[in-house]
Computed example of a mutant assay.
Amino acid sequence: MIEFDLVGAKVLLPEGEPVPARLSVSGGRIVTAPVGRPVDLSGCLILPGIVDLHGDGFERHVAPRRGAMTDPEEGIVTAASELAVNGITTGVLAQFYSWEGGLRGPEFAARVFGAIAAARPRVVPDLIPQLRFEIAMLDDYGTLPAKLAAWEIPYVVFNDHLAHDRLAAGRKPPRLTGQALKAGCNPEVYFQRMLALEARMPEVSAALDGLCATLAGQGVRMGSHDDRTQRGREEWRGRGVRIAEFPETLVAAEAARAGGDAVVMGAPNVMRGGSHNGNVSARDLVTAGLCDALASDYHYPSLCRAALSLAREIGMAAAWRLVSSGPAELLGLTDRGRLTPGRRADILVLEQATGRIVAVFAAGRVAHLNGDLAGRFLMA
């Protein structure tokens, strides 16, 4: 940790739009009094560090190609560097726990969560593991709570990637062969696995009721993925699942808002102007006041870019809240997300003329520092 007074820049304070102000850091926290080491950041904008609520972009570092990465911990360390360069000071790493196997299977998930735990002391951004659980895995319901506790996972999202209509008719889903081979499984064996899971789907609802009650008792935050209907969102709410990740329809998003649930949308969706598969537009939900937080999903650079793009429509304060205090509050992280005395010194410095991220600090530690700006800190 280093101590400094950031001067000459505009600062996004909780009260509103960016204003000229001094921001002082000591002991990894934002402090009121100057510390006596001024760093001139003229021409820059100082923003709260980004809190990424859900991202799986780390996958390409952990397993870029079959056999290319034998130590997932080194992949996590590399991913942390990518987080920092993109202004992310707190990153939720979303890992599948799925019947699909391969890089989404339980065995690989165990390796990834072990790697995250081992890497955390080595990196500057704060890393938080998230488990994406496939609800058809009934045989795993009994052991899941203990695994979450052992892996120190505070956040679970429920997924369902079975093609129910086709499986109920005994038909193979599209792209089954490619998915099976990617997971290292014979396609026919893979198909039979899916049929067996589909046959037990009538048991899932009651099993979920019990599992969610157990996880709620452990203090685990829970989210649903890809909600489509009002009824579906209401069912999840009844189980205590209060975060709707990437709802696919306006109806589902409105149902979440009506019930007081949080809505998380993808920043790539904002930048694209719509979903890649025809779902509801994240930008439309934001401007309608139906989105509480943005997440990187699969592309870390999109978070900063999406917030800056939205700032032209809804103002910087409201736009940046979607990537800082908004997601921090959903995670229960009351020590970050705003640039106020006593909070963690999670800071992003933006060059106003170019919009480039030139410096990032997490808890007062240097996470990223651009060459030109580095000189200002060294000379101070």
Rank of each mutant, 00 (worst) to 15 (best):
A306L: 02
A253Y: 07
G238T: 15
R344D: 14
V251N: 11
R343C: 09
G342I: 05
A262W: 00
R283I: 13
Y300Q: 07
G342R: 01
A255W: 00
A252N: 00
V286A: 03
E248C: 13
E234R: 13
V349P: 04
G259L: 12
E234K: 14
S325D: 10
M316K: 03
A253D: 08
C304N: 13
L285G: 02
S325P: 04
V263G: 04
Q230T: 13
W236V: 08
A282G: 09
G260D: 12
A258S: 14
V264Y: 05
A318P: 07
D227S: 06
R336M: 02
D297Q: 04
T340I: 09
G342S: 03
A267S: 05
A306C: 03
S325H: 06
M265V: 15
D297R: 01
L331F: 06
R283Y: 09
E245S: 04
V264I: 10
C291Q: 08
V286P: 01
A311S: 15
W320Y: 13
P327Y: 09
L308T: 02
G274D: 11
A317H: 14
V264H: 05
L308N: 05
R231W: 13
L322F: 04
T334P: 02
D292Q: 01
W236F: 15
Q230C: 03
V251E: 15
E254P: 03
R228P: 00
L348N: 06
I243A: 05
H299E: 11
R321Q: 08
S296G: 12
E329T: 13
Y300E: 09
A267E: 03
L330F: 11
S302Q: 05
R239D: 02
D261Q: 14
H299A: 11
R239I: 10
A262D: 01
S296L: 06
R237L: 15
A244F: 03
R344E: 14
R239A: 06
T287Y: 01
D335H: 10
A328M: 02
E234P: 08
R343E: 09
N269I: 09
W236I: 00
A282L: 03
I243G: 01
L290C: 05
V286K: 00
V251Y: 03
V280K: 04
V251Q: 10
I347C: 06
R228L: 11
D297N: 11
Q352W: 05
R321I: 08
D346L: 05
R305G: 06
M265Q: 14
G260E: 14
A282R: 00
H276D: 12
E329S: 15
L310M: 09
T249E: 05
V270K: 02
V323H: 00
P247F: 02
C291P: 07
A319R: 01
A353I: 04
A256Q: 10
W236C: 09
R305W: 08
N269P: 05
V349A: 07
E235H: 12
F246G: 02
R336T: 05
